[in-house]
Each structure stands twice: as structure tokens, then as C-alpha cells.
Design a protein around this nucleic acid. Structure first.
Lengths: 337, 337
DNA sequence: CCGGCATCTGGGAGCGCTCCCACTGGAAGC
DNA sequence: GCTTCCAGTGGGAGCGCTCCCAGATGCCGG
């Protein structure tokens, strides 16, 4: 804005003219392509600097059929799901990796119908060179659309159902098993789980980990108390759990939010943590450290998840065929167990 | 992917041919422009559906000189700044408002040098129809670049220095004053502040609010203990404060993260909250409720902030000249005071 | 001394869209 | 009856870039 002389941006033709070369040569020089003499290459570079030339992305996109952008789509009918700091970390990782590949990041919160429609268009018209898909639920129409679209797609977290060709996930089952086994090793016997949405693969996989650990110890798994990965659902779930099984002495929550909710309910109920009941979570985001007591939890490398999704997408865009990636989790003991 | 027949997307010419009209008519029909007979308009719509036509964004962008996207730039040398849930909320709000205007959201974390350079390019080549700028610090080069760029710019939170033409902010000073006055009204007399970065306007404004309240009560403001809006800086700052002024009985922290850090330090130091020391924060994000004790804090409408930034930007893109907007805060009393 | 080859070079044809403009024909105005 | 007008129409010229290809130049070996 300002009193800025709103003069048109210089075009490649003008650069070429100033450098005394043809448009073709200027273009080649700009893209570090061969077949340009040293002298002309430098002349072009000088002209670029002098004129403050910046290539027009749309023109380039039209000619190359590449947009120079990757999209991160977060599904879910409620936009609040995105407020989970989990996604912020994913974005930090993805953004860094995309920066390295000189790709811009488009963020699509496919919450409203309108939002979903726009994502659909994006997929079909190649509005981005590639798409990262997250937080899909069972039968999410986005999954089918993505598979059909003629665009590289990477899933962040396996969707429910058959595994897609390209995805990055963390070892949900292993992490949940580790956590539950730890609780059992501490001598807890009545261990329940506040599981996450069972229409997500993460929710299911973490529940499987809990169940496997229980069965492995010769114990009967308690029926899952399902929540939606939010703090209130953890608090409510914990209350339900207490009323059904007054004698539980351990809880594995499918994420830290829910574990924090459980802590709140337990505090209200006068149960002491970890003396009466041990609590373990999953994620190891900021809330785990801030909770009182600090949460024993399964650390998942969220930033790396974002980074690896982006890298896989870049590889895909480059015509490679990367294999799915499962990132390891790390069990972290704090005061809640 | 799949076995998808990677056949080219249909073009507008093909739609026109199928509908038995010229490209011009098809274009007009598509854009709901006048001068198209009802019959042909419908014929075009049918052809669009039959062929599954989606306009090519780059071609459209090249012809109209509009990209159909708005960028949200978050500055800061450390990408972790973005992990603050504050930004997630801003994004939810902005995303919803942009959806309504049919604009895509590009997210730029201008952390690395590379990232900043790419933002600069974005600004100069009109890679987006408008730009929202957040988290600028004093003398941030992005501010100057944005002012010079021939692109609508909206600041999220006033930057330090002269007010820009277009910005949305919250009433930082008023909120901070409310909080401090409340502490004073409770009978606290030695009230300190854990202020935020003083090279940001939010940090300064909240400190001013604290200072004004103290002076208004005839008390001498304590020298600000500066932090960087993170939990650790709140914890460390609180420790420093305690060692310098053992007798303080109230603390206003410039945000909830720092207040949470303060709570942690106070717990360790054996000071009871709110009995020995009352604590108030700013933001009212999730952490405020989760803290123990839950935080008395200044609620700021973060999602609305994002929404209004986006709306202001849309207005700007539409050629209007909106005036700056200051959103009100709301003081929320919880157990920490 | 000339064909052959590698390196440069620039003209031109797109990429898929919008939009200006010149043209048509029928309704309205005198 | 004629002009005047305007909704409706399609041709064509861009938008700014890439990339193919034909031509030009220099240098080698035969």
C-alpha cells in the first residue's frame, strides 16, 4: 500500500530486453537450465536484480502444470478439532520440509460442507501439486476422492480400512501397549482405558494396544470407554468409568487431553493420582507437562510426523514411490503413574 | 492414483463444444455473468456436470490477476512460536471467513531465512490476493516489505511503532488493567507482572495496562519481569520475582502460558494460590481451564480475531477501505485469584 | 575443405482462462 | 417505417511463462 507506485511487476520479456537476450535465454538462465552462456546468464541475473523481477506464479503454473503448493487437509465436522495443538506441531514439521522443497503450504479445514466441496475442487483441478490428508474418519468421503484424484496423496495417520498406498503414521498400538504394560508392571490390575474415537484408526489401534497388553498379562480388558480425544470427553469418560468400576486402579487414556480430563474428574472425586489410580496418556504435548500431576504418557514425534508427510509428498511429486512410514513412539514416565 | 485414467481435465473449450456454445458464453455462464440466455446457461451447466469440469485455477489467476488465496504469515525466528494454540484458534476463525469468500488459505511460517525470503517473494509477486501478518516484532523487516508490497495487508495485532492502516487487535491494555485492578480490589498490594516480550506491542500494551492500574491505585508498579509468552519463561520469571520481592501477593502474567509457569514455580516454592499469591493470566485458552488451580484470566476472542482479520482482508481485496478494529476482552474469574 | 556434432540462441506455439469488441436480431421508440 | 437500443453471441487477443524446434555458430575429424 503506502503511496507505492503501483507500477506493474516487470515481466520476463522486460528482463530479457534489459539483458539484451531473448525470452528463452532469460527463462533458461532463471531456471538454471543448460545452454546459456556464462555472459548472458550473468546479464540476466543483473537485469533480474535491477528490475526486482519475480516470476509470476500463475503464469508459471499454467505453463508447467505445477502449482508450487502442497495442501494439508484436516477433516472433521467440527473445526474445533483443529484447535488441538497436535496439528500445530504437524504443521511446523510439514512447513519446514515444504520450505526445503520450495513448496507453499495451503491449509484446508474441511469442516463445513462448503469447505469439503472446496477440497474436492482442489483435488480435482490440481489446485495443489500434492495433498496431505489428516484426521479422516471411517467412510470419510475425502478418502475416496483423494484416491480417485489425479494428484499425489499422503495420509497422515492411517485411515480406517485398507491401508492407502502412501501414509505416515506412528506406532499407535505399540505405544498403547507399552503404556498399559507399564501400568500392569506397577502392580495395577484393574486397568481401564479411555479410548479415542473408534471410527478413527488411531482410536482403534490404541485400544488394540491396551487390549493386547491386558490379554498378554492374562487379564480381561475392560470394555472401552469411548471419547473423542477432547478434555471434556476424558473427564466425562472417567466419571462413567468410576461409576461402573469403582475399583479400577489404572487408566490408559488415548491421548493427553483425555488424560487431563480424567485427572480433573479424579481430583474432584477425591481419588489421589497415582496412589489410588495411575494415569497414562498419549501424545506428550505441552498439556502432559502442565498437568498436575505431570502425565506419564506415550511420546509421539508429532513434528517429525508432519515433516515426514511432507517429505513423502515431495518424493511422490518428484515421481518416486516411497513406502509407508511408521514412526516409533517413546514411553515417558512422569508423576501420574 | 489408483488405476485412475489419468486423462486430462476437460477445458472450458470442451465444455463449450459439448454445450454447443462458444467459449465466451461458457465462461460467462460459469461466472454467473449476464448476457447469457437461459437455455444456453443451462446447457453449459449440464455440460459442466457431464464432463466433471473444474476451472483451472492457474489459468484463471493468470487472466484475472487474482490468485483466489490469502496468506497468513506468522513471523518469528523460532517455528515453535506457532505451536502456541493461540494461532490454531486464529486459523480456525480465519479459515471460516475465507471459506465464505471462496479464498484458499496459505500458511507461511516465516521462521527460517528461507521462509522469510519466500514470504518476500509472495508479497512481491502477488502470490496471494492479500496477506495477514502476525507476531511481528519490533523492526520486523516483514512490516516494511508488507507496506511496500502492492498487496492488501492486514495486521493481526498492532505491530510496534506507528499503527498500520489496517489491523485487528484486542484491547490488550484494557484487559491487563481489568485484571490488575481486580487483584488490587481483592486487597492485594504487592502486585507484580510477568510481562511478555517488550519488543511486541501486545507485550507492551499489557504492561501498560498493569502499570496504569497500579498507578491508578496509588501504588508503585514493580519493574516488569520480561518473558517470551512461554510456560518456561513464566516459571523462570516467577522464580526471579520471588527472589527479588519475597512479599508479593499478586501476579498478573501477560498470558496463560506464563501464568501456568508461574503456578508451577509457586507450587514448588510452597506458596499457595490464591491464598498466598493471586495469579491472573491473559488469553483464556484451554490451558487456563486445565491449570491447577484454574486460572483467573482475561478472555480474548481469538477465533473472532482470526475471523475479523480475514473479513477485513476480504473487504480490502474488494476495494473497500475498512477501519482498524479493536476487539473487547472479557475478564474471567477462576480459582487462582 | 566440408560434413557432422555440440553448444547457443531466439521465434513461436501453446498452457486455459477472461474480457474486449464487433456483430446479430428482435423489441422498443419516434 | 426507420433508427435506437440492448440482450445475446462468438472471435480473438492477451495474461506471463515454458519448451519445442529450427537456425546459427564454432570446432572437430576425415
Amino acid at each position: 500500500m503506502a503511496a507505492g507506485p503501483s507500477r506493474r511487476q516487470p515481466t520476463l520479456d522486460e528482463v530479457a530486453e534489459h539483458a539484451g537476450v531473448s525470452r528463452s535465454v532469460a527463462s533458461r538462465a532463471l531456471n538454471n537450465a543448460p545452454h546459456v552462456s556464462r555472459a548472458k546468464r550473468e546479464a540476466v541475473q543483473r537485469a533480474v536484480r535491477r528490475l526486482g523481477y519475480v516470476p509470476h506464479p500463475a503464469a508459471r503454473a499454467l505453463a508447467t502444470r505445477q502449482t508450487g503448493a502442497a495442501a494439508l487437509v484436516v477433516s472433521g465436522e467440527d473445526p474445533s478439532i483443529f484447535a488441538d495443538p497436535f496439528f500445530a506441531e504437524v504443521i511446523v514439521g510439514a512447513s519446514a520440509a515444504l520450505d526445503e522443497a520450495d513448496l507453499h503450504l495451503m491449509l484446508c479445514l474441511a469442516a463445513s460442507d462448503r469447505g469439503r466441496k472446496r477440497v474436492e475442487e482442489l483435488l480435482r483441478c490440481r489446485g495443489a501439486d500434492g495433498v496431505m490428508l489428516m484426521a479422516l474418519r471411517e467412510d470419510d468421503p475425502l478418502a475416496r476422492l483423494a484416491e480417485e484424484a489425479d494428484v499425489p496423496v499422503v495420509f497422515g495417520g492411517r485411515p480406517v480400512g485398507p491401508a492407502p498406498r502412501h501414509y505416515v503414521d506412528v506406532d499407535n498400538t505399540g505405544g498403547a501397549r507399552d503404556a498399559t504394560e507399564y501400568l500392569l508392571a506397577q502392580g495395577r490390575r484393574r486397568v481401564a482405558t479411555l479410548c479415542g474415537r473408534l471410527d478413527t484408526e488411531a482410536g482403534r489401534a490404541r485400544y488394540r494396544g491396551y487390549r493386547d497388553a491386558m490379554l498378554g498379562a492374562g487379564l480381561e480388558p475392560l470394555p472401552p470407554q469411548e471419547g473423542d480425544f477432547t478434555e471434556p470427553s476424558g473427564a466425562g469418560g472417567m466419571a462413567a468409568l468410576l461409576s461402573r468400576h469403582a475399583d479400577i486402579d489404572g487408566v490408559f487414556a488415548a491421548n493427553d487431553n483425555m488424560a487431563a480430563g480424567a485427572l480433573r474428574t479424579l481430583r474432584t472425586a477425591g481419588r489421589s493420582v497415582p496412589d489410588d489410580i495411575a494415569v497414562a496418556g498419549f501424545d506428550d504435548l505441552a498439556v502432559a507437562r502442565l498437568a498436575d500431576p505431570p502425565l506419564t504418557t506415550v511420546h509421539q514425534p508429532v513434528r517429525a510426523l508432519g515433516r515426514e508427510m511432507a517429505r513423502m509428498l515431495v518424493a511422490l511429486v518428484d515421481g518416486q514411490d516411497p513406502t509407508p512410514l511408521i514412526l516409533p513412539t517413546r514411553f515417558v514416565v512422569r508423576a501420574s503413574s
